[in-house]
């Protein structure tokens, strides 16, 4: 295992895409210490900011508040990164495989355009979780993002495949221009599923809908059992028993398509 302990908070954001199992797996201790990072416009060394223990490993642990450290785990394909603290923007962006665990909060663009792997955030996440970068036609194309807390704007924007699950509530535009995949929400502010073409958004609490979504039926889809089982292992429970209630199925967004689905959980009245 390689342990990186933050020495002091950088004053401006530190760009550290080299903090990735793919980069570190074959490096000796002194090579890890010399890996380049970018503090604002200055090129610096990893050991300017971190105490380093260990070498040549796919298992990285980062200790300290790296909330201003960007691009951790960028494009990683294997191994594991654990962050004991907060993580900065673009955590696991373009990720293809492996696991990232953050105990605290994560900033914007968690798993931006990722195509595989697993990201777990113990606290809250910022906006654009699993989203497409500006101008790109496709966001997340595979993998799983699990968030214990809440998340910001445009969660899953233009995503095509994969799962995003947020226990808490998210801000506006979850599933914006979504093309496929599944988003599970503990609630949302406005404009859920705006301009979605395909894909499924599931909310465990009532949410406001755009006028361009039409009520279809009450529904307890069988695929949910699979999801529920899969997510239960990660500590996420999704109600799916007919005895407990049903999902109200809405389809849209009629501004662009009728093939997107929003499912809103309605517990059976207790009386």
């Amino acid at each position: 295992m390689i342990t990186l302990t933050l020495k002091e908070q950088p004053r401006v954001p530190l760009e550290a895409e080299a903090i990735s199992p793919d980069v570190m797996a074959k490096l000796r201790h002194d090579e890890i210490r010399a890996v380049p990072m970018f503090l604002g416009k200055r090129q610096r060394r990893l050991d300017d900011f971190f105490e380093v223990e260990g070498e040549a490993s796919e298992d990285l642990e980062i200790r300290g508040d790296v909330g201003k450290v960007k691009w951790i785990g960028r494009g990683m394909t294997r191994g594991r990164i654990r962050v004991a603290g907060n993580a900065g923007m673009h955590l696991g962006a373009y990720m293809k495989g492996g696991t990232i665990d953050v105990s605290g909060n994560a900033a914007d663009w968690v798993g931006g355009e990722m195509s595989g792997g697993l990201i777990r955030i113990g606290g809250n996440a910022g906006g654009q979780v699993g989203a497409a970068y500006r101008g790109s036609l496709t966001g997340m194309q595979g993998g799983t993002i699990l968030i214990e807390g809440s998340a910001g704007l445009e969660v899953g924007m233009r995503m095509k495949r994969g799962i995003i699950a947020v226990k808490g509530s998210v801000r506006d535009f979850p599933g914006l221009q979504m093309k496929g995949g599944t988003i599970i929400l503990g609630g949302a502010e406005l404009r859920t599923g705006a301009w979605m073409i395909r894909g499924t958004i599931l909310s465990l609490r009532p949410i406001p809908l755009l006028p361009t979504f039409a009520y279809n039926c009450n529904y307890n889809p069988s695929f949910l059992r699979l999801y529920a089982k899969h997510l239960q292992i990660q500590g996420f429970s999704i109600p799916h028993e007919e005895g407990d209630g049903a999902y109200l199925l809405y389809s849209g967004d009629a501004a662009v398509s009728q093939k997107g689905e929003i499912l809103i959980w309605q517990p059976r009245a207790s009386s």
């Binding site: 406005l190 404009r191 705006a194 301009w195 809908l209 755009l210 006028p211 361009t212 979504f213 039409a214 009520y215 967004d253 009629a254 501004a255 662009v256 009728q258």
Partner: peptide, 28 residues
């Protein structure tokens, strides 16, 4: 206030003769 997006999205659907939810339109 804050309902412009809802209105324009509704217009996009209406331009293509797609159905919209009357009650939710009224909220705008």
């Amino acid at each position: 206030p804050g309902k412009d997006f809802e209105v324009i999205t509704t217009l996009r659907a209406l331009v293509k003769n797609q159905p919209v939810d009357q009650a939710r339109v009224a909220e705008t």
